[in-house]
Design a protein around this nucleic acid. Structure first.
Length: 507
RNA sequence: CGGGAUGUAGCGCAGUCCGGUUAGCGCGCUCGGUUCGGGACCGAGAAGUCGGAGGUUCAAAUCCUCUCAUCCCGACCA
């Protein structure tokens, strides 16, 4: 391949999407696999993204009346057993602590000892342990609603893992709330789904579809599971956040009871909702290109990379002095509520090496500064959303305004681009043949990127859903809230249906 | 847990079928020099229990046995 057309990431998305994904993470230095099977090390550039996600969401949680708290990482096995569906759903992926210490064995190694009377489950989710606290905290309707959020790590012993998308241990937030009525708990779970959807749109620049899961995809023990679904660039769906209406199931299991306004004892109505480090996976797959990570400015760890260009010590002093003026322009600058961070890259590498380094990291703007720019009182600005070679000369006095308005522009372009991609790959399908053709790769040996979101009719029978999954690995991602009320026939069995649902292959 | 594959320098690999000097290559790293505004080049250098244990042999990265680990494809999943 000629240097002109060389991409920073190999293979490209078209060549091998899964491998491309791994390479983007590596090239941006976001995370790596650890020696612990299925667990990742999140490196500073990746962790900063997570911190930005936390910061933005935490404010929204606070604004909607929630307070942060922290509960134990260990859940007694007996707690876990109280909600039967819940146990069944998570039993196969639990890490269990059975011993409390290590002792020398005869051969210079260590053996486990001190068996616990009751095994402890490393939390795969905290409904039961938080429920136990809620049971103590709630006595009267005056104690409700109880609106708690926890930022935590959790463990789900997955068979197969992929950085950010599915790891045995991951970081997330889990909101847990208790209410005095069905309506209020339902409203809460829908409200938090909106918070997630708005966040995905406004910060991650990812359009999502809000909807409800079918019974087979529902959270174990929940009455309703709501979700936001996003389309990745390989046209597969990624569940990016969930919110559950738990009815009184968990309240009954944990004994969350209160005296209501009529003086009667009643079980509380609860909800739970969460997003995880998986959002970073969504971010990568929604926007990144064959030159590496692409970051919406609102979630980027840093916004501007300053790259001084010089040939000798004399020029260096001169150029660095000018660069300082540039970085000073952005000192303590806020843009749309976000603190602007600059990266000064003085490393002894060629200009192009430093440029590509920041392209691969997805930094929104690169500012090159050399003797020629200084002579004309300007700098060269390059945008991550444009061709790597494209640069714009900007006068120093206009630079700050130019950069800030360009960040807004880039943020918007990424969203519009992702939205257009989803629209382009979303279809209405009414015939079974067409449906099967849509989800079948032309090249069986090396499947090309194919498929997308299909709005099709479904009769509501789990057997039809199962059929599609078995035949095509396609599942119902959700029953969208914005559904068309329309009579039709089930894509599988042909029986009458009154709504379209969204089908897709998913992560 | 079923099916397939792989363990050789920090990373990626060749060498293994058919045993034979001192185990190579690319990238990266270190040092020196020329470069630097579109992924530079030249020269020198450091770095390896060949996954582990046992066996066969004059001789093992290479053959045999056992073992450990990882990856891929399934089933399970945010």
């Amino acid at each position: 391949m000629s240097k002109q057309n060389r991409t920073a990431i190999e293979p490209t998305r078209d060549q091998n999407y899964a491998e491309w994904y791994q390479q983007v993470i590596k090239a941006a230095d976001m995370a790596e696999n650890s020696d612990v099977r299925g667990c990742m090390v999140i490196k500073p550039w990746g962790y900063a993204i997570w911190e930005n996600i936390q910061r933005a969401l935490d404010i929204k949680f606070r604004e909607t009346g929630h307070r942060n708290a922290y509960f134990p990482i260990f859940i007694p096995k007996s707690y876990f057993e109280k909600e039967s569906e819940h146990v069944e759903g998570f039993a196969k992926e639990c890490a269990v602590v059975t011993h409390s210490r290590l002792e020398d064995d005869a051969s210079g190694g260590l053996k486990v000892a001190g068996e616990l009377t009751e095994p402890l489950i490393v939390r795969p989710t905290s409904e039961t342990i938080i429920g136990a606290s809620f049971a103590r905290w709630v006595n009267s309707y005056r104690d409700l609603p109880l609106l708690i959020n926890q930022w935590a790590n959790i463990v789900r012993w997955e068979m197969r893992t992929r950085l950010f998308l599915r790891t045995s241990e991951f970081l997330w937030q889990e909101g847990h709330t208790a209410h005095e009525s069905f309506e209020e708990a339902m409203e809460e779970s829908r409200k938090m789904l909106d918070v997630y959807a708005d966040f995905a749109k406004d910060y991650l620049a990812i359009p999502v579809i809000k909807g409800e899961k079918t019974e087979s995809e529902r959270f174990p023990g929940a009455v309703n599971t709501f979700c936001i679904e996003a389309m990745m660039q390989d046209k597969k769906a990624l569940q990016s956040g969930t919110s559950h209406f738990l009815g009184q199931n968990f309240a009954k299991a944990s004994g969350i009871k209160f005296q209501n306004r009529e003086g009667e004892i009643e079980y509380a109505w609860t909800s739970s909702w969460g997003v995880s480090t998986r959002l970073i996976g969504a971010l990568i797959m929604a926007h990144s290109d064959d030159n590496g990570l692409v970051l919406p400015p609102k979630i980027a760890p840093s916004h501007l990379a300053v790259i001084p260009i010089y040939r000798n010590e004399e020029e260096k002093a001169h150029v660095l002095d000018y660069c300082k003026k540039v970085t000073d322009l952005f000192e303590r600058t806020e843009w749309e509520g976000i603190r602007i961070y600059t990266e000064m890259d003085e490393r002894d590498l060629t200009g192009s090496e430093r440029n590509w380094y920041w392209i691969k990291k997805g930094i929104p703007l690169r500012i090159e500064i050399g003797p020629r720019d200084i002579a004309s009182g300007s700098v060269m600005v390059a945008r991550r959303d444009k061709d790597p070679r494209e640069k714009q000369s900007v006068q120093l006095e206009n630079l700050k305004d130019y950069c800030l308005s360009t960040l807004s522009e880039i943020q918007d372009i990424y969203y519009q681009r992702a939205l257009a991609f989803r629209e382009k790959n979303t279809v209405k399908i009414d015939s079974k043949d067409e449906f099967y053709a849509f989800y079948t790769a032309k090249n069986k040996n090396k499947p090309e990127i194919h498929g997308g979101f299909a709005h099709s009719h479904w009769c509501g029978d789990p057997a039809c859903e199962e059929q599609i999954k078995a035949d095509l690995k396609v599942t119902i991602r959700c029953i969208p809230f914005d559904k068309e009320i329309e009579e039709g026939h089930c894509i599988v069995c042909g029986k009458p249906s009154h709504e379209r649902v969204i089908f897709a292959k998913s992560y």
